[in-house]
Amino acid sequence: MTGVDDTGKAILRNMLLGRWAAEKLGMTGQDAEAYSDALARATVDPAHSDVFSRIRRDFDAAGVDQSDEEILRVMTELTLKAGNLMPTATGSSVDAAAVSLARKLTPH
């Protein structure tokens, strides 16, 4: 597995995690999508890559009752799901897909 493959999986995991968290926060539509995209963008920005802390802060601020253990359990499940959703073949097609996704999510 290459670093690009890992980045693609992390981006996908954080998008899925963002959708889960947005639902818990009562977000829908464009708000939920923006929240999910922000978590995915954080994957490629080392200064903002601690998605667990962001979700913990957002849940606390909104009064969402979720334990750290539950958040970490969901993160682990979604990491496995993201790995299963990514193409398993190695080579340029996987690398290109991950790079394309990362570029889309990187702020310009």
Rank of each mutant, 00 (worst) to 15 (best):
G3E: 13
V4A: 14
D5V: 09
D5K: 12
T7V: 10
T7M: 11
K9L: 04
R13H: 03
R13A: 00
R13N: 01
R13M: 03
N14L: 07
N14A: 08
N14D: 11
N14H: 06
M15I: 14
L16V: 13
L16T: 12
L16S: 15
G18V: 02
G18F: 00
R19G: 08
R19W: 10
R19I: 11
R19S: 08
W20Q: 04
A21H: 11
A21P: 02
K24D: 03
L25F: 07
L25C: 06
G26L: 07
M27Y: 15
M27N: 12
M27I: 08
T28H: 15
T28D: 12
A32W: 15
A32V: 09
A32T: 11
A34T: 15
Y35W: 15
Y35I: 10
Y35E: 12
S36Q: 08
A38P: 00
L39N: 01
L39P: 00
T43Q: 11
P46T: 00
A47Q: 01
S49I: 03
D50G: 03
V51I: 08
V51W: 09
V51D: 07
F52L: 04
F52I: 02
S53H: 01
S53E: 04
R54T: 00
R54K: 08
I55D: 00
R56G: 02
R56D: 08
D58L: 02
F59V: 00
F59M: 03
D60H: 06
D60V: 01
A61W: 05
A61L: 11
A61V: 02
A61I: 04
V64I: 15
D65R: 14
Q66V: 10
Q66N: 13
S67T: 11
S67H: 15
E70Y: 15
E70Q: 13
E70S: 14
L72M: 06
L72V: 09
V74L: 04
M75P: 00
T76W: 08
E77Y: 05
E77K: 11
L78D: 01
L78N: 03
T79L: 01
T79A: 07
L80W: 08
L80T: 04
K81Q: 03
K81A: 04
K81F: 01
L85W: 10
L85V: 01
M86F: 02
T88P: 00
T88F: 10
T88L: 10
A89Q: 12
A89T: 13
T90E: 07
T90F: 12
G91Y: 12
S93A: 14
S93F: 15
S93V: 14
D95E: 10
D95H: 06
D95T: 09
A97N: 11
V99M: 10
S100T: 15
L101A: 13
L101D: 05
L101S: 05
A102G: 06
R103I: 04
K104Q: 12
K104E: 06
P107K: 14
